Amino acid sequence: MSLAVVSLIWDAQHSESGAQRVTYDDDGYHLVRFPYEGESSDPWRMHDPANGGGHPATFPDPRSGLIYPSHEGWGLVSAMVHWEKDAEPHEYRARFVRDPLGDGYDSTATTDAAVTGGGQYKAYMWQFFVHPGTPIGLKISARGTGDTKIATALTHAQLKLAIHTDVITP
């Protein structure tokens, strides 16, 4: 079975700006951004700065949070997020979203987790059909009591997509 893959990584230790500040969109989530250079692997150019617009995007532009699938197929998405230590949040949420900046916003696999006694290191995985022209992003949120959104920062994030391109039909 053929696979087309992209693997994005962002880390505060290797970032000039330090931790990634969480800012909330209208839907109450933050689109995690990834640089266009560094330790990432993108042989199919699914995280190309020219995707999705008339001019190339730069990190941390919102478009730097998008993966544009290179093929039709069955997509396996996975993500990892490390949160900055903060006493305020009591819940962390994440979701994979098709077209997170466009009119076709379609969230799937929303997950929430309570604060643990140690560091807040979360990993997520989901599968769904992907299509060229419909970008995918990872959106996250830290919540306090009463669903209050907390501006806790990220210290590390990864987003990966593997597209199974040989999906058979009966």
Rank of each mutant, 00 (worst) to 15 (best):
Y92P: 05
R95D: 04
R63F: 00
H90V: 14
R95K: 15
W74P: 00
F59Y: 15
S78E: 14
A57N: 11
G75M: 11
W83N: 02
W74S: 09
E88W: 01
H90M: 13
V97M: 12
A87N: 13
K85L: 06
R93S: 13
I67Q: 08
R93P: 01
A94C: 08
H55A: 15
W74I: 00
I67V: 14
R93M: 07
R95Q: 14
V97L: 07
S64H: 10
A94W: 03
S64F: 02
M80S: 08
H71V: 00
D99S: 13
H55I: 08
S78D: 12
S70V: 04
L76T: 01
I67G: 02
D61G: 13
F96L: 13
Y68E: 07
E72Y: 15
A87Y: 11
H82D: 09
H55S: 14
R63Y: 01
A57F: 07
P62F: 10
T58P: 00
I67W: 03
S78V: 06
P60M: 07
A94Q: 02
V81E: 00
S78C: 13
Y68F: 12
I67S: 10
H90P: 00
R63Q: 08
P89D: 02
P89I: 02
E72V: 12
P69K: 06
M80P: 00
T58D: 11
Y68D: 01
V81T: 03
S64M: 10
P89M: 09
P89A: 07
V97C: 08
P60E: 04
A94F: 06
H82I: 01
E72M: 10
V97H: 09
P56I: 08
P69L: 07
S64D: 05
M80E: 15
A57Q: 09
E88R: 09
H55M: 14
E88P: 00
K85W: 02
I67A: 09
V97K: 09
I67R: 11
A79E: 09
R63L: 05
S70K: 04
H90A: 06
D99K: 11
P60F: 05
A87E: 15
G65R: 10
W83H: 02
S70R: 06
P69W: 07
L66F: 13
P56Q: 12
R93G: 03
P56N: 15
H55C: 06
P89R: 05
T58R: 15
H90W: 11
F96E: 03
A94P: 03
R95S: 13
H82E: 07
D61K: 03
A57C: 11
F96N: 10
R98I: 04
S78P: 00
E91Y: 09
L76V: 01
F59G: 02
A87D: 15
W74T: 05
L76H: 08
V77I: 12
G75K: 06
L76R: 10
D99C: 05
Y68M: 04
P56T: 11
L66A: 14
A87R: 14
F59M: 00
E88L: 14
D61S: 15
M80I: 08
S78R: 15
A87G: 13
W83E: 06
E91I: 10
Y68C: 03
